[in-house]
């Protein structure tokens, strides 16, 4: 077995592609009517990007050797800030275009600050990230509950704005803007991980923290940035998901955690850090995001969903583990 990085990556990405094609063939054979028409792809394109974008960001966190369980709550809270601020500004007579811009900026700031908090707890206070982010997961979710008192927020007042179209408009009337965002961000993450010094440092820090430190990499700074970008992209997902339905549910983000992580691991990124693939996460997010719709379309009931999730996760992880052991 060839032992170059390129050979390893190719093996991994081809097996992910194999799993992906296999699943879509089953869908196509099981329900040719549904899967030869555009509708189902339209529905995938409008829903998959929310967790897909967070999956890209959490891939970096995992490669750096850390974990973040709080991103769905950060999505929820920063999304709430976005929606609440939009309504407050509109009510005080602010122009809708300015409103959505200010609300979005505050939402991003909230996400970045939440990520900064996670980073501080891990890097400075030295709490293992798995534990620290269980804490912040409850904290941010709790803050939505306390601030929102269980009420949602309508986003109809900003749905005629320019930024609304940029976030979740329909390109040429058919392609959801969030799908374009997902594609562009996938390319950007790939570039950063493979071709930028920062991505290189994330790999090195996750692979061998001590050696990275000895070779002069600012390891703590890298981890801080990794958590902050996670917060940022969780807040972006919050904006996209709430604008898509022009309503903020106070429970937004719940249910995203395990599916997003599943997308990353089905995509072939190692839970131990130091290696990972953005292409894999992209495909993984599509696989996980299309399963539920696909399962129902081929005539099984929704009761089957979790069973099939489980099968696919276990099978794909077994394939990757087999390759890793043979390296």
């Amino acid at each position: 077995m060839e032992r170059t990085a390129r050979a390893r990556e190719l093996r991994l990405e081809l097996s992910i592609l194999g799993v992906f094609i296999g699943i879509f063939l089953i869908f196509l054979i099981g329900s040719p009517d549904t899967f030869t028409r555009f509708d189902i792809y339209y529905s995938f394109m409008s829903t998959i990007p929310f967790s897909g974008i967070m999956a890209l960001a959490i891939t970096l966190v995992i490669i750096s050797g850390e974990m973040d369980l709080s991103f769905p709550s950060i999505m929820g809270f920063s999304g709430w800030v976005f929606a609440k601020l939009s309504n407050v500004l509109i009510d005080s007579g602010t122009n809708p275009n300015l409103t959505i811009l200010l609300a979005a900026l505050c939402c991003f700031a909230t996400g970045i600050i939440a990520g900064y908090m996670n980073g501080t707890l891990v890097v400075k206070v030295r709490i293992p990230s798995l534990v620290a982010t269980i804490g912040t997961m409850f904290f941010w979710r709790g803050l939505v509950n306390v601030c929102g008192q269980g009420f949602g927020e309508s986003l109809v007042p900003v749905n005629e704005t320019f930024l609304f179209k940029v976030f979740v408009g329909r390109l040429g009337g058919v392609v959801p803007a969030q799908a374009i965002w997902f594609l562009v961000l996938t390319a950007a993450f790939w570039l950063i991980l493979k071709r930028h010094r920062f991505g290189g440092h994330v790999l090195l820090v996750g692979d061998n923290f001590e050696s990275a430190r000895m070779m002069g990499i600012r390891v703590n700074r890298i981890k801080m940035i990794v958590f902050m970008q996670m917060g940022f992209f969780a807040s972006l997902a919050g904006i996209l998901a709430s604008l898509e339905v022009t309503y903020l549910w106070p429970s937004m983000g719940e249910g995203y955690l395990l599916r997003t992580l599943a997308a990353v691991f089905v995509g072939g990124t190692s839970v131990f850090g130091g290696v990972g693939t953005i292409f894999g996460t992209f495909i993984g997010a599509i696989i996980i995001g299309s399963l539920e719709g696909g399962i129902v379309a081929i005539g099984l009931t929704g009761f089957w969903t979790q069973l099939i999730y489980g099968l696919i996760i276990v099978v794909s992880l077994s394939i990757y583990s087999y390759f890793r052991r043979r390296e």
């Binding site: 170059t4 790999l203 090195l204 692979d207 061998n208 050696s211 990275a212």
Partner: peptide
């Protein structure tokens, strides 16, 4: 063995912390 990143390529290890960019 301490100052190498085992899962990375040779070129990433040589330039670790002092990348040409």
């Amino acid at each position: 063995e301490q100052a190498l990143s085992e899962q990375q390529t040779m070129w990433r290890n040589i330039f670790m912390g002092r990348e040409i960019t």
